[in-house]
């Protein structure tokens, strides 16, 4: 068995505010084997993006990790010093973000922003690094990369910018790519191209993917394993096929019900959760019991008082629901 590239266990993250810390992520744990694609699905505000930032070691005040372990390629990032953490970032794990419009420095050519990776992590000289940037752009299927490296971000379309981000992220062949809603801001036609590009490149290089999205359909086609997050907790996790065919948690049920039929992908934007009424509780609500109970049709007495423990699913994986059985 290969060692996991990413191992998270018992992760708690809080945001510090005027009235003390508010938990945003609670007891999150999963692991990603080398080269595998793992999906983290949930509505905005469920804590999935914050989990991604924690993986990168990029939590900044007022966000703070209070408990849990994050290990990248077997190395606990909590015990890594600043220099080692920097080496891990970019070389072992890289990230692409939701907004390609603002994620690139507007004052530098894209070539230079790619080249920077080779200078930072491989000690390359700028001249060589910029030559290699052309190749990196070619590898993300950008036409005429010799010319494109001299472009500034504002001269490129959203899809092109996201390709540049992928080129930056994969420049130093990291073991893990964290992709936080990489296609949400893009046109539907471009979304498919970007997803395909990421899958192909990562498969070819043996790079594992942590794919973060609100779009269960998208994640299901890309990832071997999926975790569903709700209000800071993982409520269900299983192999993609099993999760889709046998959802155990009512929330997962709802997400699948909201998918368009005929296997078509979700429409652009936030998928409407047709079968889930109500709204996501705010983290400050400090809801007792199962966080999902106000929106759950099956909720009974102890759902209001006791947080459900995580239980093994019949088909493999885990689920957190009092009513699974």
């Amino acid at each position: 068995m290969t060692a996991a590239v990413l191992e998270i266990a018992g992760l708690d993250i809080v945001v510090d505010g005027g009235r003390g810390p508010t938990p945003l992520v609670e007891d999150v744990g999963f692991s990603i084997p080398a080269g595998a694609a793992f999906g983290l699905v949930g509505e905005s505000g469920c804590g999935k993006s914050i989990t991604a930032l924690a993986v990168m070691g990029l939590l900044r005040t007022p966000l703070r990790r209070t408990r849990g372990r994050i290990a990248l390629a077997g190395r606990d990032i909590a015990s890594a010093d600043a220099a080692e953490l920097r080496r891990l970032r970019g070389r072992e794990v890289a990230m692409i973000f939701q907004e390609p419009m603002t994620a690139l420095n507007p004052l530098q050519t894209v070539g230079r922003q790619i080249a920077e990776m080779f200078v930072l992590h491989e000690g390359a000289r700028w001249r060589d690094a910029e030559d290699r940037a052309v190749e990196a752009l070619r590898s993300v299927r950008v036409a005429a990369p010799e010319r494109r490296v001299r472009d500034y971000p504002h001269q490129l379309s959203g899809g092109m910018r996201q390709r540049v981000m992928i080129a930056i992220a994969l420049a130093c062949k990291p073991k893990l790519l964290v992709a936080d809603e990489p296609t949400t801001a893009l046109d539907v036609t471009v979304q498919a191209e970007i997803v395909e590009l990421m899958s192909d490149l990562c498969a070819a290089r043996g790079t594992a993917i942590l794919m973060i999205s609100h779009d269960l359909g998208l994640v299901a086609r890309m990832c071997r394993e999926i975790a569903v997050m709700y209000a800071g907790r993982i409520v269900e996790q299983a192999a993609a096929a099993d999760l889709l065919s046998h959802p155990r948690h009512p929330y997962t049920h709802g997400l699948i019900g909201a998918l368009p039929r005929l296997g078509a992908r979700a429409v652009r934007g936030r998928a409407r959760l047709a079968e889930i009424t109500g709204v996501v509780p705010a983290p400050t609500d400090r809801l007792a019991g199962c966080r999902f109970h106000p929106r759950c049709g099956r909720a009974t007495g102890h759902c209001h008082t006791d947080a459900p423990p995580s239980k093994a699913r019949q088909e493999g994986g885990i689920v957190r629901c009092h009513h699974d059985g």
């Binding site: 953490l85 970019g90 890289a94 907004e99 603002t102």
Partner: peptide, 25 residues
């Protein structure tokens, strides 16, 4: 700004982030 977060995710030292990406903007 987002691009400063990108710069950090590239594994740059904070000094370099500030001098290269924050200062000019």
């Amino acid at each position: 700004a987002d691009f400063v977060r990108t710069a950090r995710s590239k594994g740059m030292s904070e000094t370099r982030v500030v001098t290269w990406h924050v200062a000019r903007n």
